[in-house]
Design a protein around this nucleic acid. Structure first.
Length: 781
RNA sequence: UGGGGAGUCGCCAAGCGGCAAGGCUACGGUUUUUGGUACCGUCAUUCGAGGGUUCGAAUCCUUCCUCCCCAACCA
């Protein structure tokens, strides 16, 4: 990779990306030349809300995969519901995707642009008898649909003639009917086990203004109709969506097949992203906005892209986070800390360090000349960040330090200021606390009187060790600023699972304000500039507020703080860390033993009993599987006639054949019972190894060839000649010297490794028992 | 309960019959004019549970358990 993009940490992107199942599918498709080498994905948001971090995961996946395989990713607005969608959202969505660093190039689409084609496909289905106009009302449709356990019943309108349907559907389009009076439905199966297949709705009447098509239409297609067709029209190869659409896939495939589109896209589903201490549902985010619980979609506490942008997160950090968490099918909730890690990891190498004080405490340096000022040159980056730059920092007799950096009675490992103690001022002198000025009434510390060591500017004293370094600003030069400390929005790890209103778990300290000071240089920077305020955290100058003389800085993310960690455990009132268990975990029920006869047909139950009597050596478990269907029983009986070993035959049928026949079923198998028996006889005689026997079985099952012929044709006889095997083992040992040493040093689990290598070297033909013995002997000898 | 999915460390997540990857977190240590960063080290005899097949099982067979999704004219 010559033009390899580098991730923030300097490692090439490709190395930071974990493999995932979607990528694997694409690679396989490419290898089989399934789409002539094309990879076309799409990101299909409905413009009814702002994009959030969960969408970012999908965006990174879809655009990232397209990029990686030199394909395309389409941006398609899935705008089939005029009552919910708005142009404001299409703008924000485009802005957010661009900001994240992705480009749809010319491939910007709207489902609404296909309305005419959808209509034509609907007419096509009607003509095929695969769709009909249903005039049941909403409630009736629900009733007719049945439940998950009971089949539905056909709509009385299902039998309408093609002509009637065509006429009605045309008139629906013409606007002759009120909302809700008719719908177009697919004609599939009202008894389908998959609820999505019970004559799903394809079109509904909506006399509503569409932000894109205006009043041209009063019928609008449903997602399940529009989505697969849009994918097909755009030649999408891999249509990647979230897990809750798994049930829709059967319908997706039905629509594509019945509409007879040229392209046949495939849908794949992955788990959506959840974050701890956060909610991700659009509905709930909308509520936070509408109820004024946050300041808008771009409130820096929101998990929206717009919120993160204003908070100061970088696109790189979000992309890197998405790569880091992977893509899989298991529901999961990622720790917010992982996102924060990503942000720090990125900012650490990019952002200038400056001095700021959040909770000011005045310090007067008594032995520093009054009225004197010094300009200290301070580098903007620490020694380990390969960036250059510096600014001057004014120093004078009166400065501010952070209240947290002073303690009257310091605990053991407190390295900062305390009465009589010394501390280094970052970039400047070492000072010593001489007196503490307190309010006589409240005891409040109002001021510190210190002395400084003039010989410590840029120098480290050799006679003593000063461990702490703190930030400061010159009082006369400091610029007052508002520091906004953002924290997690919810106190509970899983507010989405919690009982009751999710709003009751809002963190009252998700935003804390501090009036502090920043050094002059920092205040000259433009809104949108990111810094590290040394020892406090990463901040961004807000882009909306404080654009004038009194700047406002948002804390992007705090620094890791091992001092806080070790000094904190006593204070239990840390709302952000509350680990409330949302639901009591249900006690695991003990495993129930199933009655093998309970759900068998009378014939199979009879077979079960018959075999149990004639072959006592078979366990209930074996019999249970054997008597799953008549084909198996017949196969078993035929094999038994040839080889009188019920136990062996059952073993092979139940373990090995079961796997091979899982997909195509026992009805379609080519091999016969006697052939299985022949194979087992070969095995019993030691002619072939167990590994080879399985291979032969697989071959036999699809070809119907006699096992002897397969073995002879391919030369699969077992190798039991100890001389030959020893040679193989010698080769393995010389090729894996390191493992040999480890084994001799006690890593006995490597035994399997050596056997495996030897078996592979002989393509499975070696006698594994002999291999085991020989290796044992050689390795220990 | 019918159907569709998923269970590997505190949190993500590789692995697809032959040595349980990696990241985050946590915990030690080194360096440090940021208690930051960087660097080094530790952290799963075990993969939801039982039974079985195999020389060998997280991976194959089987039974069970738990969780998620589906009964919007939303997407």
């Amino acid at each position: 990779m010559s033009n390899a993009e580098t991730a923030p940490n300097g490692k090439p992107d490709s190395e930071t990306k974990a493999n995932n199942f979607v990528r694997t599918i694409i690679e396989e498709d490419l290898a089989r030349n399934k789409y002539q080498g094309r990879v076309v994905t799409r990101f299909p948001p409905e413009p009814n809300g702002y994009l959030h971090i969960g969408h970012a995961k999908s965006i990174c996946l879809n655009f990232g995969l397209a990029q990686e395989f030199n394909g395309q990713c389409h941006l398609r607005f899935d705008d089939t519901n005029p009552t919910k969608e708005d142009i404001e959202y299409v703008h924000s969505i485009q802005q957010d995707i661009k900001w994240l660093g992705f480009d749809w190039q010319p491939n910007l689409f709207h489902a609404s642009q296909y309305f005419e084609q959808f209509y034509e496909k609907a007419v096509f289905l009607i003509k095929k008898g695969k769709a009909y106009v249903c005039s049941l009302n909403e409630e009736e449709i629900r009733e007719y649909r049945g439940t998950v356990t009971e089949p539905g019943k056909p709509s009385p309108y299902r039998a309408r003639s093609v002509e009637q349907n065509l006429d009605l559907f045309q008139r629906m389009r013409n606007g002759e009917f009120e909302d809700g009076t008719h719908v177009l439905r697919a004609n599939i199966d009202m008894a389908a086990a998959n609820m999505k297949m019970r004559d799903p709705l394809l079109y509904r009447i909506r006399h509503a203004h569409h932000y894109k098509t205006g009043d041209a239409w009063c019928i609008y297609p449903m997602y399940d109709f529009a989505h697969p067709l849009s994918d097909a029209f755009e030649n999408i190869t891999h249509s990647i969506c979230t897990l809750e659409f798994e049930n829709n896939r059967e319908l997706y495939d039905w629509v594509v097949a019945e509409c007879e589109t040229e392209a046949v896209p495939r849908q794949y589903e992955f788990a959506r992203l959840n974050l701890t201490n956060m909610i991700m549902s659009k509905r709930k985010l909308l509520r936070l906005v509408n109820e004024g619980l946050v300041e808008g979609w771009d409130d820096p506490r929101m998990p929206t892209i717009a919120g993160f942008r204003r908070r100061g997160y970088t696109p790189e950090s979000i992309r890197n986070f998405c790569d880091m968490i992977g893509v899989a099918k298991a529901n999961s909730t990622v720790d917010l800390g992982q996102l924060e890690f990503s942000v720090r990891d990125d900012l650490n190498f990019k952002v200038p360090r400056v001095l700021a004080v959040a909770k000011p405490l005045k310090v007067v340096i008594e032995n520093y000349e009054e009225g004197k000022e010094e300009n200290i040159e301070g580098s903007l980056y620490p020694h380990d960040v390969p960036l250059e730059g510096s600014r001057t920092i004014p120093f004078s007799r009166e400065i501010y330090i952070d209240r947290d950096d002073f303690m009257l009675e310091p605990p053991k490992k407190f390295f900062r200021l305390a009465p009589g103690r010394e501390v280094r001022l970052r970039h400047a002198y070492i000072i010593k606390c001489e007196h503490v000025v307190q309010d006589p009434e409240t005891g409040q510390i109002t001021e510190l009187r210190c002395s400084y060591d003039p010989n410590t500017l840029g120098k480290t004293p050799t006679d003593r060790k000063v461990k702490g370094t703190i930030q400061w600003v010159s009082a006369a030069h400091a610029v007052p600023a508002t520091l906004r400390f953002y924290d997690r929005l919810f106190t509970m790890e899983r507010p989405d699972l919690a009982e009751g209103e999710f709003t009751q778990y809002l963190n009252p300290h998700s935003l804390d304000l501090a009036e502090g000071f920043v050094e002059p240089w920092a205040a000259t920077r433009e809104p949108g500039t990111r810094f590290q305020f040394e020892r406090i955290g990463f901040f961004i100058r807000d882009t909306k507020d404080g654009r004038d003389v009194h700047p406002v800085f948002n804390r992007i993310v705090g620094l890791r703080d091992s001092w806080a960690k070790q000094s904190e455990p006593k204070s239990e009132s840390q709302p952000a860390k509350t680990k409330a268990t949302p639901k009591a975990p249900a006690p695991a029920k003990p495993a129930v033993k199933r009655d093998p006869l309970a759900d068998k047909s009378p014939e199979m139950a009879a077979a079960f009993k018959r075999l149990k009597e004639t072959h006592a050596e078979l366990g209930d478990n074996d019999l249970d599987v054997l008597t799953t269907d008549a084909a198996r029983v017949a196969f078993f009986d035929a094999a038994l006639a040839e080889l009188d070993d019920a136990k062996l035959i059952a073993k092979w049928m139940n373990n090995e054949m079961a796997r091979e026949l899982k997909e195509n079923g026992w009805g379609a198998l080519k091999a016969t019972g006697p052939q299985l028996a022949q194979l087992l006889i070969l095995r019993n005689k030691g002619t072939i190894s167990a590994t080879i026997a399985k291979d032969v079985l697989a071959d036999m099952l699809v070809s119907g060839t006699d096992p002897q012929k397969i073995v002879a044709a391919k030369g699969l006889e077992q190798v039991s000649d100890s001389g030959a095997l020893e040679a193989v083992i010698d080769d393995v040992m010389t090729a894996n010297q390191a493992e040999v040493d480890r084994f001799r040093n006690g890593e006995k689990k490597l035994m399997g490794f050596f056997v495996g290598q030897a078996m592979k070297a002989t393509k499975g033909k070696a006698n594994p028992k002999m291999i085991n013995q020989l290796i044992q002997k050689k390795l220990n000898g």
